[in-house]
């Protein structure tokens, strides 16, 4: 960890002016990702702007019947908030599938979106990594890539975004509200994280001098037919090999609308509108679910250590959709997969 200077931001405007003034500054919220990476010398901000004092920790009803979650709401408060557990249980479930209670007590909603990849090479400064040091090469492509991407990767980077929460947010089509020196804007989930392309050092479309203020959940909540299914190498406290957020609206056995998002497979939560469209009007059942899986996994290409994730993802998608259709979402504490 390098020597850095620490300031507290008093309000959003102050935070923005601080970050604009200091090129190598970073915001810090829960710190669970940033401090980790600073200790590894992967992140080297020379100033930390503490935003935990900002008034961004409320969950509010929106006029359109959704919820607006302040960027500083801790992951655990969000997961257990009655409004979330009742109306957006998919989000609650995804959050509880991630990290540990201690980490969820610390981690903020905004920080979760911005957590960086867990790629082994990104973390190890003795190895090459284009995301950490552009131009140095990608250590993972020919190395250990079990935890890397099968979709949307590029020649320069095959990292995945490790968040569980974001997979649910993506399925729920949440909107990210940000403020910057030029004012406020809203970014759709689908546009928030980006694919690596040839600039893998850039994870998201948030500008360096912008701050996340809130996440907005639209009113469509999928509270009845949903499931978050996470497949990993041990039964808790591990990042996803593959995770699936599935949400359906079913009427008389037929699917009215569908959402499907994958985690652990790409540089961003992965969705395929055509897979979701394809489900609409179909009878909820294995046949339709297999087709949706095939569509969303179209073009998936794996590497030496992660090819199995393509077939694993296919099966997990089908199962998560089955769980959603049956109204038997995956429990995050009972380890039997229903």
């Amino acid at each position: 960890m390098i020597d850095f200077d620490y300031v507290r931001a008093s309000d959003v405007g102050d935070a923005l002016s601080q970050i604009t003034k200091h090129q190598a500054a970073k915001f810090i919220a829960g710190g669970t990702n940033l401090i980790d990476l600073m200790k590894e010398n992967v992140e080297q901000p020379t100033r930390l702007i503490d935003i935990t004092g900002l008034p961004l920790n409320e969950i509010q009803e929106t006029q359109t019947g959704g919820l607006k979650i302040g960027a500083l709401v801790p992951n655990s408060d969000l997961a257990y908030d009655q409004r979330i557990t009742r109306r957006y249980p998919l989000l609650a479930s995804a959050i509880l599938a991630g990290a540990s209670p201690q980490l969820r007590n610390m981690a903020s909603t905004g920080g979760n979106l911005l957590q960086r990849t867990r790629c082994l090479y990104f973390y190890d400064t003795a190895t090459p990594c284009n995301k950490r040091r552009p131009g140095s090469g990608c250590g993972a492509a020919e190395g250990f890539n079990r935890m890397n991407a099968i979709l949307g990767w590029s020649e320069s980077c095959i990292a995945v975004h490790p968040s569980d929460m974001c997979v649910a947010l993506s399925a729920l089509e949440a909107v990210v509200h940000v403020a910057g020196p030029k004012g406020e804007r809203a970014i759709k989930s689908a546009d928030f994280h980006r694919l690596p392309g040839d600039t893998p050092e850039i994870d998201t479309n948030l500008a360096r001098d912008e701050i996340i203020t809130a996440i907005e959940l639209p009113s469509e909540d999928f509270s009845r037919n949903y499931s978050y299914l996470k497949i990993r190498d041990r039964l808790s406290y591990a990042f996803a090999l593959v995770s699936v957020a599935a949400a359906l609206k079913i009427e008389a056995g037929a699917i009215k609308s569908a959402r499907l998002a994958l985690g652990g497979v790409a540089h961003k939560p992965w969705r395929a509108p055509d897979a979701e469209q394809g489900l609409v009007g179909e009878q909820a059942g294995r046949k339709a679910f297999c087709e949706a899986a095939d569509i969303i996994l179209q073009g998936a290409v794996g590497f030496a250590h992660n090819r199995f994730k393509i077939e694993l993802a296919r099966r997990a998608i089908v199962r998560a959709l089955e769980q959603a259709a049956a109204g038997t979402p995956q429990s995050q504490s009972v380890k039997v997969i229903v």
Partner: peptide, 13 residues
Amino acid sequence: GRRVLSCLTLAVM
């Protein structure tokens, strides 16, 4: 009153 990890917490915060 909440359980957290002190290794990822800056004391100044």
